[in-house]
């Protein structure tokens, strides 16, 4: 199939960007979306133009590096999917596809479609862990964990940190990301000792990074490649409420 692409080009964070039109031909429906971009980039290099920069790594939907806002949807039209796993079957001959970077002030554009998501790392640094030094652990079976809790925790821990939730949210809120991490650890007994400080500090960091507040619209849940549930946000709210009401200082 032949396609028209309208792609955001931006030299670096400091300069202003804009859309450019490209055309790719003889694209197979078996290609992934990024492989289609590989074809375009090879074409651009041959034409002496700068190829399009975009984040990608594992290309199997788990590392969370890829991040393109395709025709109005983070990771494109398929649900529960990442850009790298989007295949060209999703499009038809003659389509014009608009590709933009994640848009949020907390995710500044580095170049073209590549954005800086280190804010997520800093949110984790604020408390997204269990403080256990290597060698401190007791036997893995010493602490039985109800299967339902372990499963719910796992469902939250599936978050790949791609930032699609932020990109989809009209408020650029990172609440789904934050709630996934808080839920992952709050649902496990190991997470209990730091439960309160964790949610308070991580939220403070999220606010500091310049993400918006959640208004429960649900766009994030529908966009999340790992289908992280909105329920986690409600759980986060409760964790926060309990932490702030029972604070003793």
């Amino acid at each position: 199939m032949n396609l028209n692409l309208k792609v955001w080009r931006q030299k670096n964070t400091a300069t202003k960007g804009g859309f450019k039109l490209y055309r790719v031909e003889n694209i197979s429906s078996e290609m992934s979306f990024l492989e289609m971009f590989d074809v375009l980039n090879e074409q651009l290099i041959h034409e002496g133009e700068d190829p399009i920069t975009f984040d990608h790594d594992c290309r199997e939907g788990i590392c969370g590096a890829c991040s393109m806002y395709i025709d109005g949807k983070p990771h494109g039209p398929w649900q529960a999917n990442t850009t790298c796993q989007l295949h060209m079957r999703a499009f038809k001959d003659g389509d014009t596809i608009v590709v933009e970077p994640w848009r949020a002030n907390a995710f500044p554009v580095i170049k073209d479609l590549m954005v800086d998501r280190t804010a997520f790392d800093r949110i984790i640094q604020a408390g997204g862990y269990i403080s256990v030094n290597t060698g401190n652990a007791v036997d893995g079976n010493a602490l039985p964990i109800p299967k339902d809790d372990a499963d719910a925790s796992f469902a939250a821990a599936m978050c790949i940190g791609c930032g699609a939730c932020v990109a989809a949210c009209k408020n650029s809120s990172a609440m789904l990301f934050l709630s996934a991490k808080v839920s992952h650890l709050a649902l496990l007994p190991q997470g209990n000792p730091e439960r309160k400080s964790r949610v308070v500090n991580m939220l403070a960091q999220m606010d500091k990074e310049g993400f918006g507040a959640c208004t429960n619209t649900g766009a994030c849940e529908a966009t999340c490649p790992k289908e992280i549930s909105l329920t986690n946000i409600a759980r986060l709210n409760q964790e926060y409420l309990v932490a702030s009401l029972t604070d003793n200082k």
Binding site: V132, A137, D139, G140, D151, A157, G191
Partner: peptide, 9 residues
């Protein structure tokens, strides 16, 4: 043991 303690589900 270490991974369980870290919260690996």
């Amino acid at each position: 043991d270490q991974c369980v303690a870290q919260g690996v589900p």
